[in-house]
Every structure is written in C-alpha cells, then in structure tokens.
Amino acid sequence: MDSVEVRLMRADDLPSAERTSDAVFLDSDRRDRRVSEPEPEPRSREAAKRWIDRMRYFLEADPHGCWVAVDDEQIVGFAISQNRDCLWYLATYGVLPGQQGRGIGKRLIDAVLTHADNRRGMFSSTVHPAATRRYRLAGFSLHPQMRMIGTVDRSTLPPVTGLSDGSADDFDWMDQLDQRLRGAGHGPDHQYLLNDHRLIVSRTNGNHGYVYLDPRGRPTLLAATDHRTAQILLWEALASSQSDTLVNCITTANEWAVDVGLAARLHIGQEGYLAARNMPTPAPYLASGQFL
C-alpha cells in the first residue's frame, strides 16, 4: 500500500516544503536550461525566506487550497492554490524527481481542484510532459508563453506621461479591472504585493491600468483597459529596470508586450504555458507567476 499521505499543509511544514520546492525547481531548471544560460543554482538563503513568507501568506489567506504529500515524515510534493471570488489559481506545485510516477502529483492536483469547486482557473505551467498532460486532462487549455530578457537599450525609451505611484486607495478600481480581464479581483493579493513592490498606475481619460515593479524594477503583474495604456506602463517598467530585466508570462493575446520588448532591444524566448480553464486568455494583461 502506498505510504504517501496527501493532507492540508500546516505552518510547521513550510521549511521542509521550501527545501522540496527548491529541489523540484532546480531539477526542472537544469533539465530545461538553454545552452547559452548559466548553470542553475540552489536558492539563496534570502530567496528561501521569501518563498516561505509568501507560502505562509497563501496558507493564511486560503488554507484549504494548500496541500502537501508526506512520505515517512518527508514532504515529497506540494500544491499551493487559492480561491479569489469565482477564480481559482495555482501558485506553485511540484513532486520530488525521485518520487514521480507514483501518482502523487495526480492526488495533489485532485485535492486542489476539489477546492476550486468548478471555478474558472489559471496558472503558469512549465513544459514538463507529465505535468502538462495532467493539466490538459483536467480541462485546462495550454497557451504558449514567451519571455523577454536582456538589458534595455535606454536610447529607445520614449517619454512617458500620465502615470503616478499607486497606493491602497487604488485597489477598488484595480479589482474592477481585474474582474473585467480575468473574472475576479486579486483581493488581498494587492496589499501583499504592495508591501514590497512599487505600484505604478494610470488613471487618465478613463484609460486605467497598473503595474507592480519588483525591487529590481522588473514588471511582476500588469493590467490595463487598452493596449496603449499597457504599453505605456511597460515602458515605464523598462525605464525603471536595473541591469538585466525580465518581462514574463507573455501570451499571443498580448503581442503588444512583444512589440515593446523588441523595440527596447530585448531578446525573446519561449517560457512554458499559461493554463486556463473556462476563461479566455486575459488581455491586455501580464500575469504574475504566483499571483496570476
């Protein structure tokens, strides 16, 4: 009989779950590494702490969406998901390489999809064959994603006007915009992101939009009412970037972002899938990897 127990995550699971997550994604990064890319390395102590802090937030915000697989007291798999109104999203998921093929991943996905309770859903997926097969069988459409990386050619930066720093006072209309684009607001996720990200907003002439910038100036989550506003926000993000930058989670419905990146002399590449169920691909919108 299989000794693996799939159960709800507890707060004291977080350090062990982080180590499992690091091993899962380090193996994936090494397997998928492009020849021109540096050898992947384990998470730094600071990155591990950020992972634990973020998963603790998810555990507090929606504990019934957070699951682990345990074998002889070792966490061998995890699936962290969240419900926000009528939208469900999968923040992160994985099974240790040596434990794959035992049905653990299916049990974890079944658990979080039960929590989803037929909500529309989305998440960012790797290209791992077994995982993508499982997602498709669960009813998700797999939309290829692109990413753009490199150092911005600052001579290409256009003048940008009509933007300002955002605050919690903007969350109401931001959630309304989220509702329009993906069917549900981000709710408490906005405050969590604002705690350590810069928020830039557009509120001019009825053309609304926002973008969060991480501490390195990279865009983390972007949404707008129209393509022009989205491009202005992305240009501001590129102007704020420090050294190399990354624009991620670009679907074909968001080619406006490709146009900006190419104009800024960034390099384009393929990066997994945006998995979506019972919903169109949001646009103009650049999803966050873990907050979607």
Rank of each mutant, 00 (worst) to 15 (best):
M1I: 14
S3Y: 11
V4S: 10
E5K: 07
V6T: 03
L8K: 15
L8Y: 09
M9L: 12
A17R: 15
R19L: 15
R19I: 02
T20S: 06
D22P: 05
V24Y: 03
S28N: 13
P38Y: 11
E41Y: 09
P42Y: 15
R43C: 09
E46G: 04
K49T: 10
K49W: 14
F58Y: 12
L59K: 02
E60N: 07
E60V: 09
H64F: 12
C66D: 14
A69M: 04
V70S: 06
E73W: 13
Q74C: 14
V76R: 03
A79T: 01
C86S: 14
A91Q: 05
Y93K: 12
G94W: 08
V95I: 05
G98K: 01
Q100I: 04
G101W: 00
R102W: 08
I104N: 00
I104T: 01
I104P: 01
G105Y: 02
K106A: 10
K106S: 10
I109E: 15
D110G: 06
V112T: 03
L113F: 05
L113T: 03
T114P: 12
H115P: 08
H115Q: 09
A116M: 05
D117P: 10
R119A: 04
R120W: 11
R120P: 05
M122L: 11
S124R: 15
S125G: 05
H128R: 11
P129S: 04
R136G: 06
G139D: 04
F140P: 02
S141D: 15
S141H: 10
P144D: 05
R147V: 10
R147F: 10
I149W: 12
D153L: 09
D153N: 09
R154E: 06
R154Y: 11
T156M: 07
L157F: 07
L157K: 05
V160Y: 04
V160T: 03
T161E: 11
G162N: 05
S164R: 08
D165K: 13
S167D: 08
A168Y: 06
D172V: 14
D172A: 14
D178A: 12
R180Y: 14
L181H: 00
R182P: 07
A184S: 11
G185K: 01
P188T: 03
Y192Q: 13
Y192D: 08
L194T: 10
N195D: 09
H197D: 02
L199K: 04
R203H: 15
N205R: 07
G206M: 08
N207E: 12
Y210L: 13
Y210F: 11
V211T: 03
V211W: 01
Y212Q: 01
L213S: 06
D214N: 08
D214M: 02
P215K: 06
D226S: 03
I232G: 08
E236Y: 14
A237C: 00
A237G: 00
S241P: 06
V247F: 05
N248A: 07
T251E: 09
T251R: 10
A253R: 14
A253P: 13
A253W: 08
N254T: 15
E255H: 09
E255M: 15
V258K: 06
D259Q: 14
D259K: 13
V260C: 04
G261F: 07
A263V: 06
A263R: 13
A264C: 02
L266C: 00
L266R: 00
H267G: 12
Q270V: 13
A275R: 01
A276P: 08
N278E: 13
N278Q: 10
M279K: 05
M279V: 07
P284F: 10
P284E: 02
L286Y: 05
L286E: 07
G289L: 11
Q290C: 09
F291P: 03
